[in-house]
Design a protein around this nucleic acid. Structure first.
Lengths: 144, 144
DNA sequence: ATAATGTTTATGATATATCATAAACATTGC
DNA sequence: GCAATGTTTATGATATATCATAAACATTAT
């Protein structure tokens, strides 16, 4: 039975959530993906991250992040100013338009979360988080 | 804090697991992805599924499944025999090579699972499954 | 029968996932 | 200084994710 596989349930939960979340963002007329939102959020909270740094925070790889950044810049949600001391890197800043987008998305994100977690108590949530962290740690190569 | 977001933990867990699982399959010299494996497993257990049926079982959409099926056929893991009574559909059967692949992958899958769930008890697993099912249900549009 | 409707598959377009590698650049050891 | 080494970004190739839509076909109502 596939239903007995825990990763089946895991996959099901995350995919169901992502679809619901994206549908609600789309319905609000906002042109951003859940993944782009997450990257933008990370960039809002941290300056001077390399693509690798960002990748680790959003559980993607550097190549995926490179392409997402290019898209975010192209869409005007992010600005990339060349850094003088290293010709490869740029200074990434959420643009005014990006800030607007984040603000517009914020209430939807909160709502999505409430819908997804309806009927689940704080204590259960803590247990869930703990178990998920355990799994992630178990699966992490270097166990750093 | 991103760490306080439950979906961050969810995403982290599933992505960590998928990478570990795929790395182990690759290391064994087996040329199949985790997603292809899942589709093949579904086809082994059910005959006469439409692409939509398969998609619902693996939480993808019909278009993704169509492309995966084409790949599986191209790789000789699946055979697609045209059905006489409906010119669009084909009869999908796991090929001999596909069976061999499933058998080769099976021990790795079990091992992956053990690694990922190390230190997590049966009772905790049941709680985890229940919470994940609840989230998936909460996020499902029609609530069927 | 035929038109309207529904089902199923295929595919274009775009985004993300990932590996591998190239290119550009910085740093370090000598 | 310069070669070796390490870092950072970009991109080709391939797979998956998803929406939208076209094409092929089946079914149903009349």
């Amino acid at each position: 039975m596939l239903n007995s596989i825990i990763f089946y349930s895991l996959d099901k939960a995350i995919r169901s959530y992502r679809r619901m979340a994206q549908a609600n963002i789309d319905r609000a007329g906002l042109d951003i993906t859940v993944d782009q939102w997450l990257v933008l959020r990370v960039l809002l909270e941290h300056n001077d991250l390399t693509q690798q740094d960002i990748a680790e925070r959003v559980f993607k790889d550097q190549a995926s992040v490179a392409r997402m950044l290019a898209l975010l810049v192209k869409r005007g949600l992010l600005s990339a100013i060349p850094l003088p001391h290293d010709g490869r890197r740029t200074q990434l800043r959420v643009s005014a338009q990006g800030h607007q987008m984040l603000e517009a998305v914020q209430p939807i994100v909160l709502d999505n979360r409430a819908v997804a977690l309806a009927g689940i108590g704080e204590d259960e949530l803590a247990v869930l988080r703990q178990l998920l962290e355990r799994i992630a740690l178990n699966c992490t190569p270097v166990s750093n």
